[in-house]
């Protein structure tokens, strides 16, 4: 019995460590993303920005590897099937947020949009809010694995930050479309605003799902 107990927990330990590292990736990605956009707004597509952009690509790549590892191990490891299905879904949706961060950074890299001076502060604010939503989503998700009672607190933060990011992005869009800029420029800026705000939206969707899984497991 003692042997079974130990072997069960040793298998779990490897999986636990992968899940933890997977969560670390989102924190890394959101921090580098905030930095990258700040640099872009200051210097454009500079060497430093390119370095940060590459770093995000690498984080996304590592996160994908970890996700695949977790998924394979979840199938190999004899979990209660209901929990396995929920964890798989969470991991998939968690990864989507990292992918979105990578996608938006690449948009900056590839399209090199001209951000007018008057909107730079707004962009910084929006990026900060989205990164904050992603980080709090990550904390909520970690709590799901370790301390169910804390999930609700972080979830509430994500909801509130997402609401703020909505207000910020709408304000930006209204200002941009009220300006005399060429339509093509307006549309391009909108694409970027939507892309950044989408990070917070995806964090919110993830939280909706996480809360259901938490209620299912709450004693």
């Amino acid at each position: 019995m003692f042997h079974i107990h130990l072997s069960l927990f040793s298998k779990t330990k490897a999986l636990e460590s992968d899940i933890d590292r997977f969560h670390d990736k989102l924190i890394d990605a959101s921090m580098v993303f905030t930095q990258a956009v700040k640099i872009y707004l200051k210097e454009g597509r500079s060497t430093d920005f390119k370095k940060h952009s590459k770093q995000i690509k690498l984080i996304e790549h590592n996160a994908d590897e970890l996700r695949r590892n977790i998924e394979n191990n979840l199938y190999g490891y004899n979990l209660i099937p209901d929990l396995r299905a929920d964890v798989l879904e969470l991991v998939e949706n968690f990864d989507k947020v990292i992918n979105k961060i990578d996608e938006v950074t690449y948009m900056f890299y590839a399209e090199c949009p001209q951000i007018p001076d008057e909107y730079r502060a707004y962009f910084n604010e929006l990026v900060g809010l989205s990164a904050d939503a992603a980080e709090n989503m990550c904390k909520a998700s970690r709590s799901f694995f370790r301390d169910l009672s804390a999930v609700r607190d972080y979830s509430q933060k994500v909801y509130s930050i997402e609401h703020e990011s909505d207000i910020c992005s709408r304000k930006m869009l209204e200002n941009i479309f009220a300006s005399d800029r060429p339509l093509a420029e307006k549309l391009q800026l909108r694409q970027f605003i939507d892309g950044i705000a989408e990070i917070a939206d995806q964090a919110e969707d993830f939280i909706d799902q996480l809360l259901i899984f938490t209620i299912k497991r709450d004693i």
Partner: peptide, 10 residues
């Protein structure tokens, strides 16, 4: 007892 969900499952 804040147990990891996977350990709780086991």
């Amino acid at each position: 007892w804040k147990l990891h969900i996977l350990r709780k499952d086991s």
